[in-house]
Design a binder for these strands. Structure first.
Lengths: 150, 150
DNA sequence: TAAAATAAGACCGAATCAATCCGATTTAAA
DNA sequence: TTTAAATCGGATTGATTCGGTCTTATTTTA
């Protein structure tokens, strides 16, 4: 039920990246690029861990990377269009509480014919919806009372 | 993000227990008690694993146990009043995606002042609500189309 | 009184996960 | 042309948790 540490760190790293690169240039060439070392310094996470995280985030299309000297990272799209679900899925894969997904048998209860399996997608979708409702912009604020009213 | 195997098995075991003891006697003394061995046989799970599961379920107040010869297990309350959230909490403890709960520092991002921490309770509550909405009675049905309309 | 059946707790092996390190590739600047 | 800087990918090590098995204690019936 717990989020993996990698996914937890990824959220923190994305928040830091969004702070360092608040606005991406409209021409696609972000001016204020942040490198992995700066993100590690700001978040307090180990540098190798941040490097591995940004690799997955880039592969998932949440960050854009520019190699070489002067390179760095930038948000692929606006911070308001990146949600917790995107970050979690980028690091952990599809959001599912159980391995009882379509295509895999996983006969956990042969006698019951796995009667609980048809009900997991409902829970998974509800969870995904909850994560999708939290954009990155809301996480950037140090403390707000918006959550209380929701 | 994945549920632990123990919690997954606990759901299956509770479904099997609800099937073997559909109605609990109003006098509190259930007539049709199921023992751990029968549950293991019906679910296909290892018997020692089922024993460990029922121990936690009894401790959590979801099952009642009667020791000695002729003893066994019975649902503590009606199957309609037992939800997925109850079972998961009985096995895994409080439902929380991150260890960022009140009382524990866990300074994942000292530089940011853990700006993401105030937002986790919102997600946790949404997840708990989704699990609470699935009663045990719905899981007992082999296959129904109720989930589709919801 | 004795035997049988049960739950409850303790122990151990194994697997997954997190973290780290190293080398390869690419680009800009001197 | 050369040097420096920064990302990308894989492989390795260590530890924590998880899953499974076993033994012990308690209770009821014959």
């Amino acid at each position: 039920m717990r989020l993996s540490s990698m996914a937890d760190y990824a959220v923190v790293a994305m928040v830091a990246a969004a702070r360092q690169c608040p606005t991406v240039g409209a021409d696609g060439d972000a001016r204020a690029r942040a490198n992995a070392g700066q993100l590690a310094l700001e978040t307090g996470l180990p540098a190798p861990t941040v490097q591995k995280l940004v690799s997955r985030l880039v592969a998932a299309g949440l960050l854009t990377s520019a190699r070489g000297a002067g390179g760095g990272l930038a948000l692929a799209r606006d911070a308001h269009d990146i949600s917790l679900a995107d970050i979690v899925e980028a690091v952990e894969g599809p959001i599912a509480l159980t391995p009882c997904v379509e295509g895999i048998s996983h006969d956990c209860a042969p006698g019951l014919g796995c009667s609980v399996r048809p009900h997991w997608p409902v829970v998974n979708e509800a969870l995904r919806l909850a994560l999708s409702g939290v954009p990155l912009t809301r996480l950037m604020t140090p403390h707000d009372d918006v959550d209380m009213v929701q």
